[in-house]
Write a protein that binds this DNA or RNA. Structure first.
Length: 511
RNA sequence: GACCCCUUCGUCUAGAGGUUAGGACACCACUCUUUCAAGGUGGAGACACGGGUUCAAUUCCCGUAGGGGUCACCA
């Protein structure tokens, strides 16, 4: 992982870029209006935890936007807070994105590796008066905030070192470097999603650029990195909206042009509040375990806050073709697991059998602790087309196929046991006769089996259901399963007859 | 508290100054059927409230209420 953001090579490109800006006069218009500028988006998570739905959706939108415009999508780890950033979190983010199929361009940029450049920028600003040293103690700041709050104002730094003579600096205190933010007028953002929003500059204070220990803060780092990486569009969660004003001011102070911003609404948890560790945030990896297909996840995430008329099932190719920021909503949405599952069922049905096989085998092997033998694999493949139509998740799919690889005698569910009845029941005796009837069937094919069983039912003078249900119980241990003839064909002659014997012959092991 | 944002069926959403307010998930019924799904058909279900503007407002404007976000030497 080597950062690409250097200090110099991109400067020239930038000078060119800033002359093209027309954004701001046309709030509703799309970034595509700026010709000849290749789109560069980025997903910039802080590696302090898992990748949850909100982050995943932000990544998706950035990825889609870049792919739609033929630009590039970068991944940047905002690890300036090295105490909180962990290798596990980095791995979780990478795994999550990989699982989702969101591939990034170029190398991953680790913000911490850019700290010297960030510090240099801060010092340049200091030299030109765009920033100043502040010697406040944490206690002093805390008191300041408490007072502001008590007075019913926003808790802002009051700028007490802004114009103070550094000669008055108290001894023994390492100063922070603060941005000298404009105090008059207002700052406008022409957000691609939220439209024009302006804020009075008095609502913003002089933020810290460099901490007392000389390390850069996030606010400085994003600005420098977005600039250095040539980010044209910053698509991120709504919770960054107020940061955009500060960042815009910093960009301007540095003589740079900020990227186009697009603040997308947050995804809310069941409680209606922002997703967080305490509020319904689940790592995307958890959905993989639940048997969700990445394609379904992408589709579900896409429809949260974005729409294309009445279209619901939108595969990734279609999403790339259709996605743009103008159709992004401004209100937060809640995530609906039921809808995800429904979508997932669709994508499972659309999947090729071979693509599902490995996953099913793995799940079966984990749950039933049986090695997938060739015979087992043959059975599974044979029934996959049937089983696929009945599963909303890969977990269900595996569960629905588990009977194929279970050892005899089968464990019966209570409903299955009821279908079979007690020892010597009519249903069981009939299964015994069926076993005999099937004994010398010539070709063990689904069609022949169906003909044979139907014929048998006729001979017995009962409807097919009266045979099929107990038969299903005997063969699968359950009252519901894929089509019974397909089950028999998949199981094979030997295993089918053996299970029939278990149920019809001696009548054992049912519960 | 200050600043900012949001508000159409339970949920995700479409929509437009005049519509029977559309779709999807979930729900109910019917259908198909060897079961369960899937599929098909049908049903119930929404414009937060109050003022304006207008011939007409759910759509535009202003308030109210409710919800959310942000106010760190976190990101």
């Amino acid at each position: 992982m080597r950062p690409v953001a250097g200090r110099s090579p991109v400067a020239g490109r930038y000078a060119k870029r800033s002359t093209v800006q027309t954004r701001g006069e046309r709030p509703g218009c799309l970034p595509g209006v700026r010709p000849h500028m290749s789109v560069v988006t980025r997903f910039a998570p802080s590696p302090t935890g898992m990748l949850h739905l909100g982050g995943a959706r932000t990544a998706l939108f950035n990825w889609l936007y870049a792919r739609h415009h033929g630009g590039s999508f970068r991944l940047r780890l905002e690890d300036t807070d090295r105490k909180r950033s962990t290798p596990e979190a980095i791995a979780a983010i990478i795994d999550g994105l990989t699982w989702l199929g969101l591939d990034w361009d170029g190398e991953i940029v680790r913000q911490s590796e850019q700290r010297q450049r960030h510090a240099d920028v801060a010092h340049d600003l200091l030299a030109t008066g765009g920033a100043y040293r502040c010697y406040c103690t944490p206690e002093e700041l805390e008191a300041m905030r408490a007072e502001a709050r008590a007075a019913g104002r926003a808790a802002l730094y009051d700028g007490r070192w802004r114009d103070r003579d550094p000669a008055e600096a108290p001894p023994g205190i390492d100063p922070v470097i603060r941005f000298r933010a404009p105090q008059e007028g207002e700052t406008l953002i022409s957000d691609l999603v939220q439209r024009d929003i302006k804020i009075d500059n008095t609502a913003l204070d002089d933020m810290v650029l460099l901490r007392a220990d000389g390390t850069p803060t996030y606010m400085l780092s994003v600005v420098v990195d977005d600039h250095d990486m040539g980010i044209t569009h910053a698509i991120r969660g709504d919770d960054h909206l107020t940061n955009a004003f500060r960042q815009t001011q910093l960009f301007r102070a540095l003589g740079w042009e900020p990227p186009a911003y697009a603040h997308i609404p947050l995804i809310h948890g069941p409680s209606g509040a922002k997703l967080s560790k305490r509020h319904g945030a689940v790592a995307v990896g958890a959905y993989a375990e639940l048997g969700i297909l990445p394609a379904a996840m992408r589709n579900a995430l896409l429809r949260l806050g974005w729409s294309h008329g009445d279209d619901e099932i939108i595969d990734t190719g279609q999403a790339i073709a259709w996605f743009d920021l103008d159709a992004v909503n401004r209100g937060a949405a809640r995530f609906d697991m039921e809808k995800l599952q429904s979508l997932n069922g669709h994508y499972i049905r659309e999947s090729a059998d071979a693509a599902l096989l490995a996953d099913v085998e793995q799940r079966l092997a984990a749950t039933y602790s049986l090695a997938a033998k060739d015979e087992g694999r043959r059975c599974i493949m044979a029934l996959l087309p049937e089983a696929k139509a009945r599963a909303k998740t890969l977990v269900e799919l595996a569960d629905n196929l588990a009977f194929l690889v279970c050892d005899r005698p089968l464990q019966m569910t209570s409903k299955a046991a009821r279908l079979l009845g007690d020892e010597g029941s009519e249903a069981r005796r009939r299964l015994g006769r069926l076993q005999a009837a099937l004994q010398d069937i010539a070709a063990w094919s689904e069609a022949d089996l169906e003909a044979a069983v139907r014929g048998f039912a006729e001979d017995e003078g009962v409807g097919l259901g009266a045979i099929a249900q107990p038969l299903r119980a005997a063969l699968t241990g359950a009252h519901a399963s894929p089509g019974i003839f397909a089950v028999m064909a998949a199981l094979g002659r030997e295993e089918t007859l053996a299970r029939l014997a278990d149920a019809g012959g001696q009548g054992r092991s049912d519960r």
